[in-house]
């Protein structure tokens, strides 16, 4: 039933990730035997891994189309602040959730407009957004809440259900929906087409601006869900620090999943497996008792190794193309 094809490179990468994930799970299973329940580890995984996976799905489309979004962390900060402000005003939970998702979606669409409208490379536009949106979140919190002291506390359990109760369900349903969308829409093919060759898109009568816009629009939907889970699983929203550096984690997961950082190649399943791999790796390091200072180093080294290998291969290919 799946007609979407996978290049040999992607098949290899996915196989690598599947094997890696299974090995990590086994290792955690063995390590967790003394003093803990493996089931708890699995159940706790959903809220922790969901934001990365969801934001990663959105970014996969954007990167496949040859663009990027570096401002996802800051967008989550704005969405989280909007959520916090609404909760502070004691608005019903569903309105708060909708406000959070809508804010993230709108900012992602705005990114798309800026990239296509200004004709500036996505990396610059969204790098500016990274700083701009973070500041926006602080201004918003400061002006909407009297006596804002750096964080917005959310104690009422009624406002935590997406992050604490339904994270797993949201995650699985979204992944399933993404999989169906990938297999039954022309749009993902257009993203890949744009990432492959803008010139060829022009010749085929496609508007590269519109394609880019759909990538950011779809990315916004995923990012909205990611933000929702991210902000409802914590007790206090700190606009200055929430999701700081999150974009690097997400991009890492996407690239690890086999998406070409220069666009034109990538699949959703790779991103899902890549995020899972990064999460299991960090859990494994915790259970293995590795010094917390070293955990980050090891995680970074592994990303560098996998992606560095990729870039080296890409460079060689690019050199040959340039010479030809």
């Amino acid at each position: 039933m799946f007609h979407v094809h996978y290049s040999r490179f992607l098949v290899q990468r996915i196989a690598f990730l599947v094997v890696g994930n299974v090995l990590l799970l086994l290792a955690i299973f063995v390590l967790v035997q003394d003093g803990g329940s493996f089931a708890d580890v699995i159940l706790n995984a959903a809220p922790n891994v969901a934001p990365t996976v969801l934001a990663g799905l959105g970014l996969t489309g954007i990167i496949c189309a040859g663009a990027i979004d570096l401002s996802v962390g800051s967008i989550i900060a704005v969405a989280g602040t909007v959520f916090g402000v609404l909760v502070h005003r004691q608005v019903p939970p569903f309105v708060c959730y909708a406000g959070c998702v809508a804010t993230a979606w709108c900012l992602s669409v705005l990114n798309g407009y800026l990239v296509r409208g200004l004709g500036i490379s996505a990396i610059i536009v969204t790098l500016a957004g990274l700083a701009f949106y973070r500041g926006l979140a602080l201004i918003l919190a400061d002006s909407a809440i009297t006596g804002f002291g750096g964080n917005i506390s959310i104690q009422d359990d009624a406002y935590h259900s997406p992050g604490k109760v339904y994270a797993g369900a949201i995650l699985i349903l979204t992944i399933a929906a993404a999989g169906i969308w990938e297999n039954s829409s022309k749009t993902p093919s257009k993203w890949l087409a744009l990432g492959n060759s803008e010139e060829a898109c022009r010749l085929a009568g496609l508007s590269s601006g519109r394609i880019l816009q759909t990538a950011y629009g779809a990315g916004g939907v995923f990012l909205g869900l990611a933000a929702l889970i991210y902000v409802t699983r914590i007790q206090a929203i700190e606009p200055a620090r929430i999701a700081l550096g999150f974009e690097l984690q997400v991009i890492g997961a996407v690239i690890l999943g086999g998406t070409n950082i220069f666009g034109g190649e990538g699949r959703y399943i790779g991103t899902v497996l890549g995020s899972l791999f990064l999460y299991l790796l960090s859990e494994f390091l915790v259970y293995a008792g590795v010094n917390p200072y070293f955990q980050e180093v090891v995680a970074g080294a592994i990303i560098l190794f996998v992606i560095g290998l990729d870039c080296a291969m890409h460079r060689k290919r690019k050199m040959l193309e340039e010479v030809a």
Binding site: H3, S184, S189, A193, A200
Partner: peptide
């Protein structure tokens, strides 16, 4: 051309694609 898309997608990129009644390709 689109190097990392299939032959079929390359041939059909500029045209409307056949769809099921529910909208899927």
């Amino acid at each position: 051309y689109f190097g990392r898309l299939s032959v079929a997608e390359n041939l059909m990129m500029g045209d409307p694609w056949p769809r099921y009644r529910w909208g899927g390709v």
